[in-house]
Design a protein around this nucleic acid. Structure first.
Length: 760
DNA sequence: CTATGTAAACAAC
DNA sequence: GTTGTTTACATAG
């Protein structure tokens, strides 16, 4: 463990063949799949059903709730004393039964558990009454569904809503974050998502809404640095060009935009570029478009117009909204959100920001662009509190697996699982994924963190193996596309890699104009390969980074091929940080479907291997999920809008993808995972949001850390069991109860666990 | 080293 | 002049 105690999450995934125990197969598909798009709480009922069906198997009074935004995902509240293993086993069986269609991912939360915030102000536990609960629930549900989508990933910190509340309340104190956030105020105005062309307008509206001043006032930071809206305007947005491009493109329905429109969008949303930035920023935009494989240029039918699109596999569907989502329309604080998610800028950043344009570039630069990378590990889950189901205690399931898995495999493979919710994205990408580039071997963990995608080991192996030829060729396998819907988000982290990978793969099918990289890679090359290759190439090539590719106008679907056989493919899938292997697949698939991907076929091999060849992982997507993000990346989460439909998760994914994994501690047993303290999450909600923070608790910036979660949300640790992947990962859950904000109870933060317990 | 930003050379329109 | 592609260099982490 390297690391910082703070890092909350540790995920490891093991792929085990979980012996599916016999589990009760009662309910084949219990879960109704929710349309990803919908975030609404409608599903409650379904969840009940499911629970019931399954209930038998579970040992104790376990409650299962359908995840509000994640399809095929259920949240399982487990009593502290429950036999986790048995539960895991049962869930695994259940998941297997359900198959892809049913619930196959389970987020395990200890009821007693880890409560989120220390502070916990739990208001009152009023709870005892069910009625109360219901009320709460209803409220929650009722109030605003919308928010949820927005980002799934929220920083552990107080949610926007909370902040808002707090802030609104005038408690500045409450909003410690705000301060930092203030910098970002400008963001408030922008919300783009999906707006497409309209975005601007909205933006305008938003701007109007937000009176800069007002907002400032609200936010005001104690520090006194009053960041005015203006300032914010003048300041350079904390997003990389790549992230902004993604935001722009993803703001359109078709997910494509002309260069000019991209310029316009950016200017509209980030006044800095319109008024302050040097003209050269456009050159940078173009440079980024050309450089990053994730950006694919498509030509209109008539060939006259070229549109820039984001390669589906790489696309986290990050949008500004995702990055920070304004809870309420109008709520001014959204920006904060963003920041928090992304990384909170350190104090330094703030300073810089405050400084404004005048600062020399160097100075400004310090504000490192934050990609939408969100902290990946936190998996924000908003529970609209659906009805919880109680599973009946039943027999225990045998499960030795869990423990063993956890300890051994997990440890080894540190794969993270993302739960994504949809987050949003990735950074752009956000959040930059783990650096793909370098995927350093050293970091298996890391890698996962960011890019869960690739199994490190495998990669290494491959690397060693392949000299030049890759075995894979032989076995290219097409990945079936997992339903993106299910896991929309993720992909962020690897995104680039993916993109590359897909690109590569694509090559074969459709020879593109561009050069293919070293011979075509067979489609087979998998991500892993890609990575490997990447490394090598990078090393070799080291410097140039170019991508050459042109994308044919619309390809159809991409087919992704994995070099490895199914089993291998699995790995691959596992690898993906994002959400899950599935996600990866899904991503690929997703994309595949829609577009073929032949994108850049050729890459310059030698000379400038850099990006083109290598998958660019880091880039935003890494997304995710994801995350560094980009992605979102901001590269952020993703809801796959385009192909998939909008899933909220993209953001989260992105974020997730990003960094943190490194320091994740391993646990020997599942129980350990559950029990383990939430690291410092509580303290760092924010930090979590920001990768950097996460990694190292910055002593320096206490501010950032928010003491407690706000009312609606709480952080808690949990395990994610993905039956599709047979993986078990530890994660941080950022639970927010939309709508609760208002409710005192909620505000109190009922911890998730508490909440659950109440349900019981 | 990597990711990112910036500048610039060039090419094709 | 715009759009794209590449290189090269600088800088932060």
């Amino acid at each position: 463990m390297k690391t910082s105690p703070r890092r909350p999450l540790i995920l490891k995934r093991r792929r085990l063949p979980l012996p599916v125990q016999d589990a009760p197969h009662d309910t084949p598909e219990e879960e109704p799949k929710r349309p990803p798009a919908q975030e609404e709480p409608s599903q409650v009922q379904a969840s009940k059903e499911v629970a019931e069906s399954n209930s038998c198997k579970f040992p104790t009074g376990i409650k299962i709730i359908n995840h509000p935004t994640m399809p095929n995902t259920q949240v399982v509240a487990i009593p502290n004393n429950a036999d986790i293993q048995s539960i895991i086993t049962a869930l695994t069986a259940k998941g297997k039964e359900s198959g892809s269609s049913g619930p196959n991912k389970f987020i395990l939360i200890s009821c007693g558990g880890a409560s989120t915030h220390p502070s916990g102000r739990q208001p009152q536990p009023q709870t005892s009454n069910d009625s109360k609960r219901t009320e709460i629930i209803t409220e929650i549900l009722g109030p605003r569904p919308a928010t949820r989508d927005a980002n799934v990933l929220r920083p552990p910190g107080p949610t926007l809503g909370q902040r808002l509340e707090n802030c609104a309340g005038g408690d500045t104190t409450g909003c410690t974050l705000d301060n930092s956030l203030t910098n970002i105020q400008w963001l408030e105005k922008m919300s783009s998502d999906g707006l497409g062309s309209c975005s601007i307008k909205q933006e305008m509206e938003e701007k109007e809404n937000c009176h800069p001043e007002q907002s400032q006032v609200k936010m005001e930071e104690p520090s006194g640095t009053s960041t005015c809206w203006q300032d914010s305007m003048s300041q350079r947005p904390p997003y990389s060009y790549m992230a902004m491009i993604q935001f722009a493109i993803n703001s359109t329905e078709r997910k494509r935009m002309t260069l000019k429109d991209i310029y316009t969008w950016i200017e509209d949303h980030f006044p800095y570029f319109k008024h302050i930035a040097k003209p050269g920023w456009k050159n940078s935009i173009r440079h980024n478009l050309s450089l990053h494989d994730m950006f694919v240029r498509e030509t209109s039918a008539n060939g006259k117009v070229s549109f820039w699109t984001i390669h589906p596999s790489a696309n986290r569907y990050l949008t500004l909204d995702q990055v920070f989502k304004p809870l309420d329309p109008g709520s001014p604080q959204s920006p904060e959100h963003l920041e928090s998610q992304q990384k909170q800028p350190n104090p330094e950043l703030r300073r810089n920001m405050t400084i404004k344009t005048e600062l020399p570039l160097g100075a400004r630069r310090k504000m490192k662009p934050l990609l939408p990378r969100v902290s990946s590990y936190l998996v924000p889950i908003q529970f609209p509190v659906n009805q919880s189901l109680v599973l009946q205690p039943s027999v225990k399931v045998p499960l030795p697996l869990a423990a063993s898995l956890m300890s051994s495999e997990l440890a080894r493979h540190s794969k993270r699982v993302r739960i994504a919710p949809k987050l949003l994205l990735a950074d752009e990408g956000i959040a930059p994924l783990p650096p793909a580039g370098p995927v350093k071997e050293e970091k298996p963990l890391l890698g996962e963190g960011l890019l869960p995608l690739l199994p490190v080991q495998s990669i290494k192996e491959e690397e060693t193996q392949h000299g030049e030829d890759m075995p894979q060729l032989a076995r290219p396998i097409k990945v079936e596309s997992p339903p993106l819907e299910e896991w929309p988000s993720p992909c962020p982290s690897f995104k680039e890699e993916l993109s590359h990978s897909w690109e590569d793969s694509s090559c074969s099918p459709t020879p593109r104009p561009k050069k293919s990289y070293s011979g075509l890679k067979s489609p087979a090359r998998c991500v892993s390969e890609m990575l490997v290759i990447k490394r090598r190439e990078k090393r070799e090539m080291s410097r140039s980074r170019r991508k050459q590719h042109l994308q044919p106008p619309c390809l159809d679907e991409p087919e992704l091929v994995f070099s490895e056989g199914p089993s291998t493919s699995r790995r691959v899938t596992e690898a993906p940080l994002l959400a899950e292997p599935v996600s990866h697949l899904s991503c690929l698939q997703e994309e595949g479907g829609p577009f073929k991907t032949p994108i850049k076929e050729t890459l310059p091999i030698s000379s400038t291997p850099s990006k083109s060849i290598l998958p660019k992982t880091p880039e935003s997507w890494r997304l995710t999920p994801p995350a560094k993000a980009e992605g979102l990346d901001f590269s952020p989460v993703r809801t796959p809008q385009g192909a998939f439909g909008s899933l909220p998760d993209s953001l989260g994914l992105m974020d997730l993808s990003t960094t943190q994994l490194k320091s994740i501690p391993l646990f020997d047993s599942p129980r350990e995972l559950l029990n383990s303290e939430p690291f410092d999450l509580v303290s760092d909600p924010f930090s979590s949001s920001s990768p950097s923070d996460l990694e190292v608790p910055k002593p320096g910036s206490p501010e950032l850390q928010v003491p407690s979660l706000s009312a609606n949300r709480s952080l808690t640790e949990g395990l994610v069991l993905d039956t599709m992947n047979d993986s078990l990962s530890k994660i941080l859950l950022d639970i927010s109860f939309p709508g609760l904000e208002e409710d005192p109870l909620s505000s109190d933060n009922i911890t998730w666990s508490q909440f659950i317990s109440e349900l019981r």
